[in-house]
């Protein structure tokens, strides 16, 4: 595919993604690929969660498929999906012109600042499952939330020093606005003039139906619960292992493998929640269990090369 012509408005969902990729690549970010696990948001990608810790400078951008089982609507709701895409940018330390850089990205996808009303409205971010919080805004374009903008203060119970700036774009919603589409399933996925034009619904309507059915009614809760407990136990076990690796004789702290188990536990909790088998009081307890894992993973990561403090 040739470089996109940014002088005309984008014509498809994928063109918006490509423009964001190329814009943030131009700003010096490493354009990573999605993490290969089920996560609830782009923040869960270790490129954000773990890399926000420690003193090593970092700049990454990536698309992350995200799953929110309770948001499934069998592909019928114009705005809600149980599987959707987030675009995530993380830069450490946060550069002084991050707001301007962000506005540049909106310009790159065809939002004309001269015609639209862009606002930064207070919205502090907190992830109880990650033991993380930050201050920032939701960014409004003509009254619609198009991004989250956060300065990370803590992750896994550790202070972030230096502070990372995190941008999260809800890609479907943003693209629907830019493309002027009212129902997500009607949105052009590739170029409408392509030999085989595909709409979002052509790609995802069926999977939304199948997963909605599974998430809400068909998933075997005993199995999910067992998997949750397995992931929780494995995470703790990995971290309790001695660092000395018998193969190489070197110290290897397995922060990432442990964190994978934490991600699994988190997603399994979301599935159990969607199946309606977690009561209000139990909910807090489950969130606390996942948070405990995230915290242990963060504790381990800051002992590693990549997570070293200043």
């Amino acid at each position: 595919m040739t470089a996109t012509d940014t002088s005309r408005p984008p014509r498809s969902f994928q063109e918006i993604i490509l423009r964001l990729q190329s814009y943030w690549a131009r700003q010096g970010c490493a354009v990573l690929q999605p993490y290969d696990m089920e996560v609830g948001a782009g923040t869960f990608h270790p490129a954000t969660t773990l890399r926000a810790l420690g003193a090593t400078p970092w700049a990454a951008a990536y698309v992350q498929p995200s799953r929110r089982p309770t948001d499934g609507r069998y592909g019928e709701n114009p705005n809600r999906l149980q599987h959707y895409y987030q675009y995530q940018v993380i830069i450490k330390p946060s550069p002084p012109d991050l707001q301007a850089l962000y506005l540049g990205s909106l310009d790159a996808i065809g939002i004309d600042m001269e015609m639209h009303d862009i606002r930064f409205v207070e919205d502090d971010w907190e992830s109880p499952t990650l033991g993380a919080w930050g201050l920032g805004w939701e960014v409004w374009c003509d009254g619609m939330e198009v991004s989250q903008f956060t300065y990370f203060q803590q992750v896994g119970g550790h202070d972030c020093r230096p502070v990372s700036g995190e941008l999260t774009y809800g890609l479907e919603r943003l693209a629907m606005y830019v493309l002027g589409v009212d129902h997500v399933m009607d949105m052009p996925f590739n170029d409408p003039d392509a030999p085989i034009p595909l709409r979002y619904g052509d790609v995802f309507r069926q999977t939304e139906q199948e997963f909605s059915a599974w998430n809400f009614d068909r998933a075997d809760t005993d199995t999910l619960l067992r998997h949750f407990e397995d992931a929780e136990a494995e995470c703790a076990r990995i971290l309790a292992e001695p660092a000395r690796d018998p193969q190489t004789g070197r110290d290897i702290i397995m922060a990432h493998p442990a964190y994978d188990q934490c991600i699994k536990a988190s997603h399994l909790f979301n599935l159990l929640d969607a199946r309606g088998v977690i009561s209000v009081t139990e909910r807090q307890a489950y969130i606390g269990r996942v948070r405990a894992l995230a915290k242990q993973c963060a504790d381990a990561f800051v002992q590693t090369e990549a997570g070293r403090q200043a």
């Binding site: 330390p93 946060s94 930050g134 201050l135 300065y151 203060q153 230096p162 502070v163």
Partner: peptide
């Protein structure tokens, strides 16, 4: 009521002070 750090600095303000 709530303040934050940003970048590599240690100053606290409600949002980055420019």
């Amino acid at each position: 009521p709530k303040s934050m750090r940003w970048g590599a600095g240690s100053l606290r303000w409600v949002r980055p002070l420019h």
